[in-house]
Amino acid sequence: MSENLPKDKNEEVDLGALFSAIGKFFDKVYGFIANILKGVFSSIIFLIRAVIDNYKVITIVVLTAMLFGYGLQKMKEPVYYSEMLVKPYFESKYQLVTNIDYYNSLLDSENYETLSSVFTINDKEAKTIKSFEIEIGPETENDLVVQYDKYVKSIDSIRAQDISFEDFVDNRDLYSSDLFTIRVESTKRDIFKKLSNGFELTISNNEYSKKKMRIRDSTLAIKRQAYMRDLRKIDTLQMVYLKILSNESEKGAVSVGMEGMFPLTQERTQTREFELFQNELRLRDSISVLDQLKVEENVYYDVLSDFSEIGVKSNDWTKKYILILPALAILVMLLTFFASNAIRFVKNYEA
């Protein structure tokens, strides 16, 4: 037993050193966090003290900036906006987005003559337009689920397993939607209704969409001809069956058993009137679907919600100079304060 005593004492020393090292580690962590908190607190106090020492200058600068911003805001014309919700067909959404960029480029280059010819307005009205914007239209959760299901079916099943609904929603771009909101800003409050025809004309002149519509119409016509041909065949078979049944009912088609051993039996030809009737109903339903599709999608885009007669006054915070200028003034003063203190620190450090 005496031989085991030194070993136990060494183990106790090792455990004590381990716990001591762990304690020192946590002390350093706590000290590091405390220093950070102390530094943040000191910076806040330092900043508050600077504000208190210079509150007169700060107040004068902020009030001056507010007054200047208020005057600048009053001098500028008020801006109004209106929105139009559209649903493009035949891939015309690409032309729609391209047109919006084109209109904004005309505004940037001040080419009001071309812009006025596009929307059939005069140059004076064209100069009142400030911007065109387009974004994805309002969508519900069900709409996104339907789009996700359609997308998953369009790609490989193995790859579809790696794309979750959340990934699909996060990675969507402007062209992923079927609904679009077009927003126009102008200093003229009642110009927006005049712009609707311009959008319709420019989208309707898209050759690619015209080609897509022609292909769709030709496909529908071919399918309809095939369905009508099948209907005529069914009508012919139905007439044949009716004729057979009529002849059998007139003649009786009765046969007598051998040597009178069997009773009289009436043999009738088996027909499939009910199956023909079901096929006829299915074909007529298919034809109705084709006709309905052609009626519903006979334009390049539908306007779900048009521009309003009178625009709404824009409350864009970027145009509220009464708030922006004081904020900029405060930011400049803070940068100046920190820069001056940094310069003073560097000079004292070199000395």
Rank of each mutant, 00 (worst) to 15 (best):
S43M: 15
S43D: 09
S43K: 13
S43N: 12
S43C: 13
I44N: 12
I44L: 13
I44V: 15
I44W: 14
I45W: 15
I45E: 14
I45C: 10
F46Y: 15
F46L: 14
L47T: 10
L47K: 09
L47E: 05
L47N: 09
L47H: 06
I48K: 13
I48R: 10
I48S: 12
I48A: 13
R49L: 11
R49N: 09
R49F: 07
R49Y: 07
R49D: 07
R49G: 04
A50D: 13
A50R: 08
A50N: 14
A50V: 08
A50H: 08
V51H: 07
V51E: 07
V51A: 11
V51D: 05
I52S: 10
I52G: 05
I52V: 15
I52R: 12
I52L: 12
D53F: 12
D53C: 05
D53M: 10
D53H: 07
D53G: 09
D53Q: 09
N54F: 04
N54D: 05
N54K: 09
N54H: 06
N54V: 06
Y55V: 11
Y55S: 10
Y55R: 12
Y55C: 09
Y55A: 05
K56T: 10
K56S: 12
K56D: 03
K56L: 14
K56P: 02
K56V: 13
K56Y: 10
K56N: 08
V57D: 05
V57S: 10
V57W: 08
V57R: 12
I58G: 00
I58L: 11
I58F: 13
I58K: 01
I58T: 01
T59S: 05
T59M: 09
T59H: 02
I60H: 01
I60M: 03
I60Y: 01
I60S: 04
V61F: 05
V61E: 02
V62W: 02
V62T: 00
V62Y: 01
V62H: 01
L63K: 02
L63D: 01
L63E: 03
L63F: 08
T64M: 11
T64G: 08
T64P: 01
A65L: 02
A65T: 01
A65S: 02
A65Y: 00
M66G: 11
M66N: 10
M66F: 15
M66Y: 15
M66P: 01
L67Y: 06
L67W: 08
L67R: 03
L67F: 11
F68D: 02
F68C: 09
F68H: 04
F68Y: 06
F68L: 14
G69E: 00
G69M: 00
Y70N: 03
Y70C: 03
Y70D: 03
G71Y: 14
G71T: 14
G71S: 12
G71M: 14
G71A: 14
G71R: 08
G71C: 09
L72M: 15
L72N: 10
L72C: 11
Q73E: 06
Q73V: 04
Q73F: 06
Q73I: 04
Q73G: 11
K74F: 06
K74H: 07
K74V: 03
K74S: 04
M75R: 04
M75L: 11
M75S: 09
M75I: 10
M75D: 04
M75P: 02
M75A: 10
M75W: 14
M75G: 04
M75C: 05
K76V: 11
K76I: 13
K76C: 07
K76E: 12
K76S: 13
